[in-house]
Design a protein around this nucleic acid. Structure first.
Lengths: 224, 224
DNA sequence: TCAAAAGTGTTAGATTTACACCCATGA
DNA sequence: TCATGGGTGTAAATCTAACACTTTTGA
C-alpha cells in the first residue's frame, strides 16, 4: 500500500561539519572526495540516509564512521536543496555540525580516512555547496556558543581558564579582557575549579576547571 | 547514468508554518488534513517536493498555492526525519515559516482552502510531528525578530507605533514600556514617521510609520 | 635572574529600567 | 464632559568595558 506514489522520491544525504579547537584556532575536518562526481575535490564528510534510519541517526552514524566517536554534540544546520547542487544527481543534503575534542580523535584513524583539520577561516573551495554549509554552520554554532555552554565539548574534560578564553576568542574573532572574562566565569557555579594544576601551558601552572552539567541544569543560565 | 543507485530514495515534503498577527495575538494558519493517512486531523499546510524544484521553491509554491501571495518572507526551520514520523510512508519534511500580513490573505481564499488562524499559544494537537515543527519555528522566529527587522512583514505597510509595540509584546510574551519602546524606535532612522494618521484605533488618531528597507540596509542595526 | 603565563579589583561610562502626566477627539 | 488611546522626559540602577601590577617557576 503506497499513499504518495504519484510523487517523486529523491536521494537524501547528510553532511557533517566537524569542528575542533587546536592551537588556539577553530578547525574543520575536511578530506578529498572519494567518489564520482567530484572525486578528489576538497569536501565535507557525508553519506546517504538509509531507509531505516532517521536523519539524526544518519548523521551520528556518519560521524562515528569517520571518527569512531559516539555521544557527540551535534546539531542540525538545515537542508540544502538546490536542484543542481550536486553535479551528478539530484540529492538533498541535510547538514549537521559536531563539536569534538581534537585529542579524542585518533590520529591513525584520521589519516586512514584521509581527512585533515583545516583552519575554519582558511578553508579552500569545497565540493558543491559545502562552503555555504560551513558558513551557515559557523554562524549557528557561534550564536549557540554565546548562549549555551557547548564550548566545553571542544576542550578536554579538565581545562584551564586561558584555554577556555582562547576558545571564546577564536569563536568571536576578538580579544577578550582576561579579568572581565574570569569575573564572568566565577559567577557560573557549574564551572568548577579543581585542585589539579596544568603545567604544560606555563611554568607556574594553572588551575584546571571542569564543566558540571548537572549543576548547570539546576540553574541554566549562560552568557559569554 | 546514475551515480548513487545503490542508495535508497525517499519522499521529501515541505510544511509551512504561516504566522500572522491579528487582534494583538500571534496566529498560525492550520487546516484539516485532506489526504490519507490522517485525513481530518489538524495539520500544517504542506506538499511534496517535485523533482525539478528546489526546497525553497517548493515552499514558495506551497505557500502561494494556499494564499496566492508571492515574495513572502520565508525561512527554513530545518528537516524533520524520524523514520516513523509519517504514519503512511517514510517522508522527510523540510519545514519553513512565513510571515504574512493577515489582511493580505483573502478571506474567500482562506475559506476555500478550509484553513483557520489559530492563536499560536493555543494550538490543538496536530498531525504527526507538526507541533514540534511549530515549536521550533516559533523559537527561531522569535529569535530572529529580536535581531532583524522582520516584524514589519506581519503589519500593514503603514502602521502605528502601538501596533508595532503590541506585536513585539505578543512575540516576547511580556509587556513593554511604552516610553522606552518609542525611545528605541526613534533611534532607528529607517522606521519613518509619515504625516498620515490612523483614526481606526483611537479618537485622537495616531501617526502612521513605515519601514524603509533601503535606509535599513545603509545602517543595518536593529535590536528590540 | 628573567621571561612567560597566572592570577586578581576598581572605576567611569553606557545601557537599561522604572515611572506619571497632559493631549486630542468622538461619542 | 468624559473615556480612550496617543504622546512625551528624567533619574536611579545595572551592566559593561577599560585598565596594571604581583606571583610563580623553569630554563
Amino acid at each position: 500500500m503506497t499513499y504518495y506514489s504519484e510523487h517523486s522520491k529523491v536521494w537524501v544525504s547528510v553532511d557533517c561539519i566537524i569542528f575542533g579547537f587546536d592551537e588556539n584556532r577553530m578547525k574543520v575536518l575536511i578530506g578529498r572526495r572519494q567518489m564520482d562526481p567530484g572525486r578528489g575535490e576538497w569536501s565535507l564528510y557525508g553519506g546517504f540516509v538509509d531507509a531505516e534510519e532517521s536523519l539524526d541517526e544518519a548523521a551520528e552514524r556518519t560521524l562515528s564512521e569517520l571518527t569512531g566517536l559516539e555521544h557527540v554534540f551535534m546539531r542540525q544546520v538545515g537542508a540544502f536543496g538546490r536542484v543542481d547542487r550536486d553535479p551528478g544527481e539530484r540529492v538533498i543534503s541535510v547538514v549537521y555540525y559536531a563539536l569534538i575534542n581534537v585529542k579524542d580523535y585518533s590520529e591513525t584513524l584520521r589519516r586512514e580516512h584521509g581527512v585533515e583539520w583545516v583552519d575554519a577561516g582558511e578553508l579552500p573551495q569545497l565540493y558543491s555547496d559545502h562552503n555555504m554549509m560551513v558558513d551557515k554552520a559557523w554562524k549557528l554554532m557561534k550564536q549557540k556558543m554565546r548562549t549555551e555552554p557547548i564550548g566545553f565539548r571542544l576542550l578536554p574534560k579538565l581545562f584551564t581558564l586561558t584555554q577556555l578564553q582562547r576558545l571564546y576568542e577564536a569563536v568571536s574573532g576578538e580579544e577578550i579582557d582576561k579579568r572581565n572574562f574570569r569575573k564572568r566565569i566565577k559567577e557560573m557555579d557549574y564551572i568548577e575549579k579543581t585542585d589539579k594544576i596544568d603545567k604544560t601551558g606555563s611554568k607556574r601552572g594553572a588551575y584546571l576547571y571542569r564543566f558540571n552539567d548537572n549543576a548547570y541544569k539546576e540553574d541554566p543560565n549562560f552568557k559569554l
